[in-house]
Structure formats: C-alpha cells, structure tokens
C-alpha cells in the first residue's frame, strides 16, 4: 500500500485506481472464461510435414513473432519496419504509464529518481508522439478510416491523452512541476482508472487475447508444416 503521504484527494484517487484494476481483472477473467467456453478444434489430419515443423514449434515460434520483425513481410519491408518501430515505442509507453501509475502509489521514491524519471518520462513522451502519428494515420488513410470503429478512435485518443498526462505526472513526481500540486498525478491516476475500466470492453483488450490467438494460429500452421515462415 502507499508509503508516501498523499493528500486525501490523491489517497482517494489512488484507492479508486486500485479498485479499477480489480474491476479490470474481474472483467478480463470473465472474458477469458467466455473465450474458453468455445470448444477447441483439434486437427485430425496427420502432421503435414514433420520434417519442417510441428504444432508445438509453430506455436512457440508464433509467440516469439512479436520480437522478430524480420519474420513477417509486413514488418520486414521498410514501411512495415517503421510501423513496427512505432509499435514498440507505443507499447513501451503503455508499460511506462502503467508502471508510473502503480509504482507512484506504492512507493513514489521508486519513480522519483532521475534515472526512473528520465526513462519513464522519455518513454511516455515518445509514445505520445507516436500516438499523435497514429491518430493522423487512422484519420488520413482511407483504408484505416474504412475499417475503424468509434472504439478504435476513442481508444487511441484516450491513450494519447493518457500518455500526455503521464509525462506531466512523471515530471511532477520527479519534482519538476510543483506549482500544480498533485493535480497532474490525480488527473493521470483518474485517467488510468478510466482506462482500466474501459479497456476490457474495447479493442485494447487485444493484449488479453494476443497470446492465445498467436499460439493457436502457430499451432494450426505448425501442424501443417507451414510455420515458421519459409522463403528464399
């Protein structure tokens, strides 16, 4: 529990965001239960090409795909590689924001030091810039406009604001924006709470499904012998 001495408003906000976390965990558990209520399709066909791959190999390779931009053509070509870089920055920003939110309420000193402050602050600032780019991309590219739902826009906008608030909150925690009191941190934690409550209902919950979808497609294609990728 928090070791610093927060104002009563900040203490309330901190408690709320822990509750939001619990709420998110509960809804996630329900969503996983919902997903796993659908039956598993097992492949009755004989392994396609065991010399090339197996279900297990395909599944594991597929899980590792996220750190292998050279694997897929879509992330290997220059344009895709650039997008992959923005993906990395964006998600590091998410990790930084979540770390800031929870570590600041557990032990503010952990995120107040210059090393942590610069690391988290830079990650959040870079993610904020990437998020702006992503908004522009989604709004300007006809393909993305066509496939985007209101949730897609809102989730991205919400994260953009959250990254910005994160930069300000980090500056405050590191002692750089004292004039605003706890306002930045309170705003950031409230945004985090909203974020935690909203994500299980939005596309952001993709990271919950991600390990499963990747593993399943890898297993399916690995059994057939066509995964890992092959080209010359």
């Amino acid at each position: 529990m928090p070791q610093h001495e927060p104002s009563s408003l900040l203490a309330t906000v901190e408690a709320v965001h822990w509750m939001a976390l619990a709420f998110m965990g509960t809804v996630y558990a329900l969503r996983l239960w919902w997903l796993f209520r659908f039956g598993r399709a097992s492949d009755r066909s004989a392994p396609g090409n065991p010399a090339q791959s197996t279900a297990l190999r395909g599944g594991l390779y597929s899980l590792g795909n996220v750190v292998m931009p050279w694997a897929m053509e879509s992330t290997r070509k220059p344009k895709g590689l650039a997008f992959y870089a923005t993906f990395v920055i964006f998600h590091l920003g998410v990790v930084a924001g979540i770390s800031l939110a929870f570590l600041s309420s557990l032990d503010r000193a952990l995120v107040a030091g210059p090393a942590a402050a610069w690391t988290l602050g830079t990650a959040l600032a870079a993610a904020f810039l990437v998020a702006l780019y992503r908004i522009a991309r989604r709004v300007l590219r006809p393909v993305l406009r066509l496939i985007s739902t209101p949730d897609d826009y809102f989730s991205l906008a919400m994260l953009t604001v959250w990254f910005l608030l994160g930069v300000c909150a980090q500056a405050h925690v590191a002692g750089a924006a004292r004039f605003a009191g706890d306002a930045y941190l309170i705003a950031f934690l409230l945004a985090t709470s909203f974020f935690l409550v909203y994500v299980p209902f939005s596309k952001i919950s993709h990271y919950l499904y991600y390990p499963f979808t990747r593993y399943w497609i890898g297993r399916t294609l690995g059994h057939r012998g066509s995964y890992p990728y092959s080209r010359s």
Partner: peptide, 16 residues
C-alpha cells in the same frame, strides 16, 4: 472453435 473466435475478436484494425 475458439481458434476462430480468437480471430474474430483479435483484430486491432492496424492495417498491417
């Protein structure tokens, strides 16, 4: 099958 459901819920509309 849940593999198909995974594909149904897993798209993030990234356009990749």
């Amino acid at each position: 099958p849940r593999q198909v459901v995974g594909s149904l819920v897993g798209c993030i509309h990234c356009g990749m």
